[in-house]
């Protein structure tokens, strides 16, 4: 019995140490686990870096301005989500979907999650209309943004505040 407990306790201690060394070493650890090519490819198997929302926006859009979407994006999100683990979202975009000018990407970004970038949806002119629905996890009460990027590079943004009663294990 004793011999069975020993490896378990050392493993627990090792995990604790790993946690204490912080983000920098953690990131290094991930770098070692992932082959270089996979790490370079965005979203290919590994979580995105933990960062704040300003960094996420900068990484995704650079210095391109975000325009207020106004009526162009219909974004349905609950005002109060009782369960942060399942927050239903629906995005309907009222922009032309022609061969030259269509909605290329739609992003869901939640400001207070540890990894704000939640999901990216890509459309083609064959989609007919850019509309998407999904469920996401929110760690705490936060603004959720729906951002649409057209093939011409124009970016529209809209946001809703979702109040979360019980956080869903932080995404």
């Amino acid at each position: 019995m004793k011999s069975q407990q020993d490896p378990r306790s050392t493993r627990r201690a090792a995990l604790k140490r790993l946690g204490a060394t912080g983000v920098a070493l953690g990131a290094l650890g991930w770098g070692l686990v992932v082959p270089g090519s996979a790490a370079a490819q965005a979203g290919a198997g590994m979580p995105l870096p933990e960062e704040n929302v300003a960094d996420t926006l900068k990484r995704l859009f650079g210095n391109r301005p975000l325009q207020a979407a106004g009526e162009r994006i219909k974004f349905e999100a609950p005002m109060i989500a009782e369960n942060g683990a399942v927050v239903p979202l629906r995005i309907d975009i009222d922009l032309p979907m022609t061969k030259d000018d269509y909605v290329k990407n739609v992003y869901i970004i939640s400001d207070k999650n540890r990894r704000p970038m939640n999901a990216q949806f890509s459309f083609t002119p064959d989609s007919g209309k850019a509309a998407v629905g999904t469920n996401i996890r929110l760690a705490s009460t936060s603004d959720v943004r729906a951002i649409a990027e057209t093939s011409k590079g124009v970016i529209y943004e809209t946001r809703r505040e979702v109040k979360v009663t019980v956080g869903g294990c932080g995404g």
């Binding site: 965005a42 979203g43 979580p47 995105l48 683990a85 399942v86 927050v87 629906r90 939640s110 999650n113 990894r115 970038m117 939640n118 999901a119 990216q120 949806f121 890509s122 459309f123 989609s127 007919g128 209309k129 850019a130 509309a131 998407v132 629905g133 999904t134 469920n135 996401i136 996890r137 869903g168 995404g171």
Partner: peptide
Amino acid sequence: AATTQAVSQNPFVSFT
């Protein structure tokens, strides 16, 4: 869609 861990368990997507 490129989804992350922030998408809920039993992921659901709707599109057109």
